[in-house]
Design a protein around this nucleic acid. Sequence first.
DNA 1: AATGAAAATATGGTCTC
DNA 2: GAGACCATATTTTCATT
Lengths: 152, 152
Amino acid sequence: MSLDSIDKRILEVLQNKGRMSNAELSDMANLSASACHRRVQRLEKDGYIRDYVALVDPRKVGRPTTVFVEITLSGQADEVLDAFEQAVARVPDVLECHLMAGTADYLLKVVAGDTDDFARIHRRYLATLPGVAQMQSSFALRTVRQTTAMPI
Amino acid sequence: MSLDSIDKRILEVLQNKGRMSNAELSDMANLSASACHRRVQRLEKDGYIRDYVALVDPRKVGRPTTVFVEITLSGQADEVLDAFEQAVARVPDVLECHLMAGTADYLLKVVAGDTDDFARIHRRYLATLPGVAQMQSSFALRTVRQTTAMPI
DNA sequence: AATGAAAATATGGTCTC
DNA sequence: GAGACCATATTTTCATT
């Protein structure tokens, strides 16, 4: 159920090099290949490792602009929230959506090509989201740090 | 330099299954294994694919709480910004840091165990960041959507 | 771009501690 | 229960066409 120091080491390594071969990984963990392999399988089965993914450079595929959008809904009823969440999950340009405590109800992270492209995304998708009372967009000028690696 | 529809298909697939075998990937792309392999190598070499990583479940490793922290600096001089950015990059609990346009100067995405753990991170790391004039933290109650896949 | 051969890697069994 | 060693299957990689 819980992780020993070897498991943590494996997770740390795979979080940074997800395609490392089992042979090399077993070296990093000071284990035999089979022992290492069984640990990785357990970490996958138990849900510690959710997925392996390739990270694509946003600039290379025309999405250099990150915009955070704070959204206030017109009500707090479950139906309003559910409808909003289902709709927002279908927008491919929205990478993240968080239900927030405090001022705004939701915080969205959106990737766009530029400000014009964000205007397109806004018109086409965001403006049609149900139950929205207020929306405030903040542009990122530059991303200083961006990682998917959890501190272990 | 640019991507045809087959390249895009390959990126889409690898963004969701980063450890897919080249054999299976070549099926998805309707290519021979060798042709597919050369495409992937080119996408890696040209920087379209930045990395392969394992995604670890934040809940499983004791980081179920996401906090967004808006930070205003005491000045806009390059030295102030540089010092801040170098310091923030060393905090393992900060997964993202964006320089923002508009109200706040920086937006940080922090992962914590719970509110008490965030208090620890705040005391130990955030409170010691240089040049900070104001800091406002917003807790995420629930993450509705979280993906690393760029729309292609 | 396809084919086939060689090398590397992953996977699963079995034994031992 | 966990690790090491070994055998086999799969995959990658590269030369050739």
